[in-house]
């Protein structure tokens, strides 16, 4: 692999057929080629036959170019977009279970307000906080919570869309595609 640029995080979005085995094909390709995924999120798109995936990939520009090309090469992948240089909105969701003695509670609530996080569960000595935002915001919140004692963290992967009018990876509705079970092939997984 050629390296001329520095390693950094890149966001890639892909529109893929929503059928069994697709995630396996993609993760198998990443593993085999030694690409490093920092996060991966999958969900249904505006088209019920298609899922949209967001990958955060660590590498230099030529690595990201290879990732994009190898994703495109998969038959079940319809469209791939490197969002790294685009003006994008990125969000992730995180849940934190933290120690919260009764004395600390109001301080934690204050912090949560500042970060626009929600208290979603409260017990005698712990509470669960929910926050959405870009990665930096979540990391900053985590740092602020650390002194109280973090028991568990659960984070989703990053999801991203391009800002502005034009859609990043949308497609016209594919013709003739019926519900997914009639597509037949499960192709591993």
């Amino acid at each position: 692999m050629n390296n001329h640029s520095q390693t950094s995080k890149h966001t890639i979005s892909a529109l893929v057929l929503d059928k069994p085995g697709v995630l396996n094909r993609i993760s198998s390709m990443f593993r085999r080629r030694g690409f490093n995924i920092a996060s991966l999120a999958v969900g249904q798109s505006e088209n019920p036959d298609l899922s949209r995936m967001t990958f955060v990939v660590v590498g230099n520009n030529s690595v990201v170019e290879q990732v994009t090309k190898h994703l495109n090469k998969l038959i079940d992948v319809i469209k791939v977009l490197d969002l790294s240089s685009e003006n994008v909105i990125s969000r992730e969701l995180a849940l934190f279970r933290i120690n919260s003695s009764s004395q600390a509670r109001s301080e934690i609530m204050n912090l949560s307000n500042i970060f626009r996080a929600n208290v979603v569960d409260i017990a005698r000595n712990t509470m669960i906080l929910e926050i959405t935002g870009d990665e930096e915001k979540i990391v900053a919140f985590e740092e602020m919570l650390r002194p109280f004692g973090i028991i568990e963290i659960m984070r989703t992967g990053t999801i991203s869309l391009k800002r502005g009018m034009d859609a990043s990876t949308s497609l016209p509705q594919p013709k003739e595609r019926k519900n997914q079970s009639s597509w037949g092939e499960a192709a591993s997984v």
Binding site: M29, S188, V189
Partner: peptide, 26 residues
């Protein structure tokens, strides 16, 4: 044997066909 699993990285594409109707298209 998980044949589609084993051959996933060494095929251009593969299929596990779960309905006879899909055979001609596949």
């Amino acid at each position: 044997t998980d044949t589609t699993g084993i051959t996933l990285p060494i095929t251009k594409h593969n299929y596990l066909v779960m309905n006879a109707t899909d055979i001609p298209r596949v």
